[in-house]
């Protein structure tokens, strides 16, 4: 656990065990196992097509796994243990599980016909049964936290890419999730807008929420992660602290990847 942690987190333990997933004949995940401690920040890096995003999407059951299992705080995702059998959960229960896992997408996926505040306040009302008034108040608080309180009534298309992604983060936070998943949150942004989003995620990293981040921003990964996971061809090749992975990678595949993505000027 990092020293920056303000209070020891007690919830948000993610355990991934032997997860397999195929799309047609292609096996995208070939038995992936990973544990992220409560309040931990895991950053997954690797070449495109290595299965990073798919792994992330299996954690909130947007992708059903073909083998293995995932649990959060000891509870299986998408299944229920009854006797010696795993019963697939019904849609209603899966939706309930998902409210504990926030997700931020590469393309923001904000609802374009709803204002920033409506985007943030929608799910707490319909998925958690909170009052509209409470959801609104909390929504404004969260928009304030990502620095967008004055744009609460703007529609997503009236916002810049960086602002849209910050609204998307506020939307994910509105359900008070134990875990936040980031799927390349800055890949669709212009370079000068990347930092405003990364700054918000840095703040979150100190809050005790478990974060799992797929990104190509290596400098940010080194800053914020307490575990860096390198994936290639559907497998975890190597994992460790940023120090270990970036300065002293053990596997030739890791070394070859970093020699390509890290600019010569990058100081490691």
């Amino acid at each position: 656990m990092t020293a920056t942690l303000s209070a020891p987190a007690t919830r948000g333990l993610v355990q991934i065990t032997g997860v397999r997933k195929s799309f047609g004949p292609t096996e995208v995940l070939k038995g992936v196992s990973l544990t992220v401690e409560p309040g931990g920040v895991a950053v997954i890096v690797g070449p495109s097509g290595s299965g990073k995003s798919t792994l992330l999407r299996t954690i909130n059951h947007l992708e059903k796994v073909d083998g293995g299992h995932i649990s959060i705080d000891g509870k299986l995702v998408g299944y229920e243990v009854r006797g010696q059998k795993l019963h697939e959960l019904r849609e209603k229960d899966i939706l309930k599980q998902r409210t504990e896992i926030g997700m931020v997408f590469q393309n923001f996926n904000l609802f374009p016909h709803l204002t920033a505040l409506e985007n943030v306040a929608e799910a707490p009302v319909v998925a958690q049964g909170r009052s509209k008034e409470e959801a609104r108040r909390r929504g404004l608080e969260l928009l304030d936290r990502v620095g967008l309180k004055d744009r609460a009534d703007a529609y997503p298309r009236q916002l810049s890419g960086g602002q849209q992604q910050r609204v998307a983060i506020a939307r994910a936070l509105a359900l008070d999730p134990k875990i936040l998943l980031f799927d390349e949150p800055t890949s669709a942004l212009d370079p000068e807008l990347v930092n405003e989003v990364l700054d918000v995620i840095r703040e979150l990293a100190k809050s005790g929420t478990t974060l799992i981040i797929v990104t190509h921003e290596m400098g940010f990964a080194r800053d914020v992660a307490d575990t860096v996971v390198f994936m290639d061809q559907g497998q975890i090749v190597e994992q460790g602290t940023p120090q270990q992975i970036f300065t002293n990678p053990q596997e030739p595949r890791t070394r070859s990847f970093f020699s390509k993505v890290l600019e010569p000027a990058f100081n490691i």
């Binding site: 909130n60 947007l62 209603k92 939706l95 309930k96 998902r98 409210t99 896992i101 926030g102 997700m103 997408f105 393309n107 996926n109 904000l110 609802f111 929608e122 799910a123 319909v126 998925a127 958690q128 939307r171 994910a172 359900l175």
Partner: peptide, 12 residues
């Protein structure tokens, strides 16, 4: 992506 985002937020 709109459906995925809604599903991820637990919207029925």
């Amino acid at each position: 992506g709109q459906l995925e985002a809604a599903a991820a937020l637990g919207i029925p």
